[in-house]
Structure formats: structure tokens, C-alpha cells
Design a protein around this nucleic acid. Structure first.
Length: 548
RNA sequence: GCGCCAGUAGCUCAGCUGGAUAGAGCGUCGGCCUCCGGAGCCGAAGGUCCCGCGUUCGAAUCGCGGCUGGCGCACCA
């Protein structure tokens, strides 16, 4: 049990003896200001109202009541409006180091998820073109969120949903068909709403080469399948280059062929939330707080098809039925309008799916800056920065790191020049460099970085303030991972890593390791820093180089 | 018009789910560098946390009302 867990439990026990209601949430954190101790709690302040006493009086009684094991805390004080500050014995602080080395690559993992299943859906691009930089942000984000959940004990399924059944696919097929016709010299325009990118022409050429029996592309259905397959393959290659893998690829078309869409419509009708108007079938989403009702099946003159949202609902029913009591969708914020509709559709089925199902992580748009100018991204026109272009230009690690270092709900400006630069201004370089420096110490010392556990080393020699600060930062890592996972915010990890790297660089510059009396103890510290940096980076899918 | 998101140092952004004196990088200014990698190091200045009201012992954080910017409001997906 760590010092934090021990004190937290002791506080909870003391609080209950003072008459606090059971199950009070004990906030015990490392204060920003080291003069406020190693750990501090606001428990007395939080209990002031329910106990009807002054915070400082409660704090005094808590301190008098609390039972702590010997050798853990050297001083307890009450400060400010009623904070209780705990000062740990130095041995207890540096005692975190052997724990870190013993856990190794698993340090920071937790079991809070209890192996429960969770589905993380991301990218889910229509197979109508290559993946652009916005998809890249989503790929990095979804993969990191999935990793955070894995690190905290969830059983994660990474899922990609292909909308291969809608009107956009028909546009794609007709666009390719038009290009095929142009290849044989005919003057045919790309249809209204079609795709103009250069990749359409390439697909047309490949179709003609592969289909001698249909050189004019008359068979629209075959053209459609060929184009969708070609683009899916291309997207897969892009994702592979980015180091993202999926466990499940779900196809919208399969929901139709399996009858799942019809079944969902029938259930909605049976549940009594639908009606007919103007020849169309509507879902009364206003029953569930929507501002207007939504069409679920178009009128005959519009083709009589389902609108997109019925297959969307059907798809999420399959997630629920596959046992995912938790589902997270990572999407661009331009789709936020669908959030309520999917949830409402699931509610209208009245099959016991929770109101907040699925959860959403929405991300804002990406603009790319290069040489001080914005790189224009336009899908239909064809001038087009793809995720592969970006990875080729700045490297996989930098792309992933950059996409993860900002909160998802703020607009992100990707600075290509910064991402490529080999200086400390570049945060991914800065963090990786810290890891390389720690590795460098072991290289010079001719020791294997994975040897040793810290056993038998006198860690009491780590007395410098920078060293104590560094150890405390390392000890924070597991809590950090859990909070980032709970908030579904990978950017907390990059922020943490930059802070840790800063402390590591400062320590490295100020103190020598090899040849000093503290060598053995400092090697333990260096290895722990190296390990935590490596763990944080690997969680985010970024390499931790031994040298740069 | 309605909905969602954002507004924090000159710039780019953190801020651990309501805590103590709001932080980092870049930039600016002033010092320093024979070293396990100088691809440097140390320090300083710099704030109406968009505005107002409210809740609270305590608000950048929560609520309400504004202002500014982005996105969305189809029988498209």
C-alpha cells in the first residue's frame, strides 16, 4: 500500500469516528507548494457543513483521532482555513523508487476497470477518399483513449465503422464512372455533389485495367464495390503507417443485409414513438427532449430509404447486444448534432439502454501551418493534405504527440515546422530527449538499463530538493493515468510528461551521477525516470528512443 | 433565432473535476558555460483568468445573463 492509500484510509476511519457520514470522498493530494507538506487534505473543510462545526476545530479533532503507522509521517500540521498537511519521512518518499522499478513497464497500470468491456469507436471515415489530418487527430485520440482504458483495467475493443451504404457512396461510384468514361475520350462531367480528387482518376484507371469485360464502367454496382474496396485498402495503409490497429471493422451495409436496420425500425414502431406525415415515417424525438422530430424513412418520392440515423441506431444496438455496457465514440465536433439523435433513438427502443449511451469525445478541427502559412485542406477539390503526407513529413511520433497534446475540444493548429525541429522547443523532442539522456547514463556506465531493482542501495543519499521533487513526480504517475482515463483526456499525459522531462533535464544538468558518492542511488533514480517516461510514451503510442 | 464548444501572461497553451500566493514553453530583459551529449544553464519582469450577478468558509473551475470566435441546426452522412 502506498503512503497515499494508507493515509487516505486512516483519514476515512478517523472521519467516521467523528460522526461523518459513511463513504465520504477523501481528497488527498500533493499540494503545489512544497511548504504545504507532501500530502494535504481538505477533509475538515468538506465536513464543516454536515458536522456543523468550524473547519479548524474539525481538523484538530481529526489530527487527534487519526491513527497512522510509525515511520510514515514525520509531521502533521493544520494550515490555512483548515487544511491538514502531512510531511512524510524521507525514507517513505524515496521508497517509491523500488516500487517503480519492480513494476517496470507495468508501473502506472491499475485494475479499476475490472476487466469490464468497453467499445471505443474512432476514425469511422466514409470510404470516399483518403484520410485527412482531421482523421489523424481522431486516430491519435481514439487510440490513446483506448490505451488509457486498457491501462486502467478495461477490456477494450477498438472499432472502425464504415458508412458504406449511403448517398455519399453513390456519389463516389458515379464520380468514378464519370472518370472511366473520360478515359475513353468521352466528355462527361463529374456529377453534382461528386468527388473531384486525383485519386478518383487513379481508381478509374485501375478499374479499367482490372475489368476487361466492362471497359466503359457500365456496371455501377461493380464500380461502387471496386472503389470502396480500393479506398478502404488505402485507408488501412494510412492507419498502419500511423501505427493504429482496430479489432473490429463494422460495415453499415452488413446492418442492412442482416436485417438489423429493418428490425430496429420495427422495434421503434412497436414502441409507439413513430408516426406518418407527408409520406415519410417520423420518430417523435421530441418525446425525449429533441427540439424537433426526425424523419427515419424518407417518402416514396425521395426514394423511400432510411435516413442515416436509423442504421446509426441499429449499429449502436449491436454494440449493446455484443455486451458493451460502455461505448465511447470519438468524432469530429461537426457531427455533434448526431449525439442527441442516436441517444434518443436508443431510448425510444425502450430496451434498457442508459440515457448517456454511448459516450462521446468530440474534437475540434485541425489546421496545418507550414512556413508561416496555412496549408489548405479541401476534400472535394482534391488539393489535400492526408494523414500519410503528414506522417511522411514529420514522422509518426511527432504527429501522434502533437495531436494528443491539446484538449480535444479546442481548435488545433498543427505547426509542421515545430514538429520537425530537433530542438527543445519541440515538446516531443524534449520528452524523448529526457529519456535518451537517462539511457545515455547507463550507456556510459556500461550497464543494462533493465538491470537492478534498487535493492541494497542506500536511497537516503538522495537528499537534493530536485531529487525529492523528481521522486514525488514519479510517484504521481499512476494517479495521473487514472485521472486521464476517467476524463478521457490523453493531453493530461503529455502535460505530465513535459513536466517530468523538465525536472529530469534540470536534475541532469545540475548533478552528476557517475563517479559521485551518490552514484548507486542516482542510478536508481535515473532508471525510474527512464521507466516512467517510457511508460507514458508507450501509452500514447510514441517511441522512447535510447539515443537521438 | 436555437444548440454544442472555446475565451487564462505579448504569443501558444496547462491548470489534477471547488482549495492555500493562477503555472509552463516561446518571446523580452539580465547573468553564466572546461562536465554522463551545449541540440546549453540560471534568474527576473510580465495577469481585471472576456464582462456582470449569484452559490460557497473558499470560484479560472459550479449556476444565470451578456460579449467575442468556431461548429452545427435536411426526407445529406
Amino acid at each position: 500500500m502506498t503512503a497515499l492509500e494508507t493515509i487516505r484510509a486512516a483519514l476515512a476511519h478517523a472521519a467516521s469516528r467523528l460522526g461523518a457520514p459513511p463513504g465520504v470522498d477523501v481528497a488527498l493530494e500533493r499540494p503545489r507548494d512544497p511548504t504545504h507538506g507532501d500530502l494535504a487534505t481538505n477533509l475538515a473543510l468538506a465536513l464543516a457543513k454536515t458536522l456543523g462545526q468550524k473547519p479548524r476545530a474539525i481538523a484538530e479533532r481529526l489530527v487527534a483521532t487519526i491513527e497512522l503507522p510509525r515511520g510514515l509521517v514525520r509531521k502533521t500540521e493544520i494550515a490555512g482555513p483548515g487544511f491538514i498537511n502531512f510531511f512524510l519521512e524521507t525514507a517513505e518518499v524515496v521508497g517509491a523508487l523500488p516500487t517503480i522499478l519492480a513494476a517496470g513497464a507495468a508501473y502506472g497500470r491499475a485494475a479499476v476497470g475490472n476487466r469490464r468491456p468497453v467499445n471505443v469507436e474512432f476514425v469511422s471515415a466514409n470510404p470516399t477518399g483518403p484520410l485527412h489530418v482531421g482523421h489523424g487527430r481522431q486516430a491519435a485520440l481514439g487510440d490513446a483513449i483506448a490505451a488509457l482504458l486498457e491501462w486502467t483495467g478495461w477490456k477494450v475493443t477498438r472499432e472502425f465503422y464504415y458508412n458504406d451504404g449511403g448517398g455519399q457512396i453513390a456519389n463516389l461510384a458515379r464520380s468514378v464512372q464519370a472518370r472511366i468514361a473520360q478515359l475513353s475520350g468521352k466528355s462527361v462531367d463529374i456529377p453534382e455533389g461528386g468527388y473531384h480528387g486525383e485519386y478518383i482518376r487513379e481508381i478509374a484507371e485501375r478499374y479499367v485495367a482490372a475489368h476487361k469485360e466492362d471497359p466503359a464502367g457500365k456496371n455501377l454496382d461493380t464500380v461502387r464495390r471496386f472503389a470502396v474496396d480500393a479506398l478502404r485498402e488505402e485507408q488501412d495503409r494510412d492507419l498502419q503507417a500511423f501505427g493504429v490497429r482496430f479489432d473490429v471493422y463494422a460495415l453499415e451495409s452488413a446492418l442492412y443485409t442482416s436485417g438489423k436496420v429493418d428490425e430496429t425500425e420495427a422495434r421503434l414502431v412497436a414502441a409507439g414513438h413513430t408516426y406518418e406525415k407527408d409520406g415519410a415515417r417520423w420518430l417523435r424525438t421530441t418525446d425525449f427532449g429533441d427540439d424537433k422530430d426526425r424523419v427515419m424513412r424518407k417518402s416514396a418520392e425521395k426514394g423511400g430509404d432510411y435516413t442515416y440515423f436509423v442504421p446509426d441506431v441499429a449499429y449502436h444496438v449491436t454494440k449493446w447486444e455484443r455486451g458493451f455496457s460502455r461505448a465511447i465514440n470519438v468524432q469530429g465536433a461537426d457531427h455533434h448534432g448526431t449525439v442527441r439523435r442516436v441517444r434518443v433513438g436508443l431510448q425510444a427502443l425502450e430496451m434498457g439502454i442508459p440515457e448517456g449511451y454511448p459516450e462521446y469525445v468530440l474534437h475540434q478541427m485541425v489546421t496545418v501551418m507550414k512556413g508561416g502559412e496555412e496549408v489548405k485542406i479541401s476534400k472535394r477539390a482534391g488539393s489535400y493534405m492526408t494523414i500519410r503526407d503528414l506522417v511522411d513529413e514529420v514522422g509518426r511520433d511527432a504527429v501522434r504527440y502533437f495531436f494528443l497534446m491539446r484538449k480535444s475540444d479546442t481548435h488545433f493548429v498543427f505547426d509542421v515546422d515545430l514538429a520537425k525541429s530537433q530542438t527543445e522547443e519541440n515538446p516531443v523532442f524534449y520528452v524523448q530527449m529526457a529519456h535518451a539522456r537517462m539511457s545515455g547514463i547507463f550507456r556510459v556506465a556500461s550497464r543494462e538499463p533493465d538491470s537492478g531493482t534498487g535493492a541494497g542501495v542506500d536511497l537516503a543519499l538522495l537528499t537534493q530538493p530536485e531529487e525529492i521533487e523528481l521522486v514525488k513526480e514519479l510517484a504521481d504517475f499512476p494517479e495521473m493515468v487514472q485521472r486521464a482515463a476517467a476524463a478521457l483526456e490523453p493531453n493530461r499525459i503529455t502535460t505530465y510528461l513535459e513536466g517530468l522531462a523538465r525536472l529530469a533535464h534540470a536534475w541532469y544538468h545540475k548533478y552528476r551521477v557517475l563517479g559521485e558518492p551518490e552514484e548507486a542511488a542516482r542510478l536508481v533514480l535515473a532508471r525510474a525516470v527512464q521507466q516512467v517516461l517510457a511508460n507514458g510514451l508507450s501509452l500514447l503510442g510514441i517511441r522512447a528512443p535510447e539515443r537521438m
